[in-house]
Amino acid sequence: MIISLPNTTASEVSKELLRARQTSGATTQGRVFTLVVVTTPAEADEALAASQLAATEHPSRILMLVDDPDAEASGLDAEVRLTRGSASSETLVLHLRGEVAAHPASVVTALLLPDSPVVVWWPTTSPVSPVDDPIGALADRRITDALGDADPLQALRIRAANHQPGDTDLTWTRLTRWRALLAAALDQFPHPVTEAVVEAAADNASAELMVAWLASRLGLTVQRLTSEGPGITRVRLVTEGGTVQITRTDARHARFEIPGQPDREVALPRRILSELITEELRRMDADEVFEETTRALLARTESGKVDGSPSEGEHQ
């Protein structure tokens, strides 16, 4: 059910929501947080689809802010979308036209779920300091995606420099499966790591985070080699007992190599946006391991070790 409310106000939208809820007979609010998605008209559809998929695991109120500052007439258009079946989630698409786009918090504040956490997600470009953004300031969790930026590496460094507890970036989320496999590898082969190598496409932001994470966890200088990609293609951990190695073989598989054990093919699918968002929404507290990783990333940047272009890659 979609209810359109052209040229409206936040309190009208609120009333309409209440009315819709009373008609549907759903009288308890199972929604556990408000997800605010800050988008532009061009990217709204994809972000909406991903948020709604994520909402099947995390029933929430989704506020899609579609900024259109260049619109001729200033005003707020709203759509209330209630999905039957996944009745637990409600979506409000809010078009902020003209001057209203400069005052998004005035709209959002009136529509947050009472007493529940607020998550804000910028699918593409995001503020330099998310916590100081008017919407970001309302939120407990702020999700950015450096990959949505024209220069992901630079964007990631800016994130790291401005990191505040509650911030995470999807470049980090994209690493979870890799990190899980590496951790499992050392569970199975518990030897001290003496050398670590990450091979990935040039300019890959997730690879930089991987390097920083390994460096901070292992206390080593991690080598960064450039490959054809896409993304991270191999991580090698050298130990005194032999080499542990995980190599991406195609978009969905990897080869898992541990000394003394047969090589195994494991699933390593590239995850779609909705899965990334779903993972992010699982935790409302600060990700301290990510924070440490961003610190390690900054330390590397300062010592000039970040691989900005293929020619800077270190080779054995």
């Binding site: 989320t173 979870t176 990190r179 951790a183 569970d187 790591v193 966890r217 292992l218």
Partner: peptide, 10 residues
Amino acid sequence: NPLRDPRDRR
């Protein structure tokens, strides 16, 4: 395991 941290709940 140095790659595992109790705070790393992902």
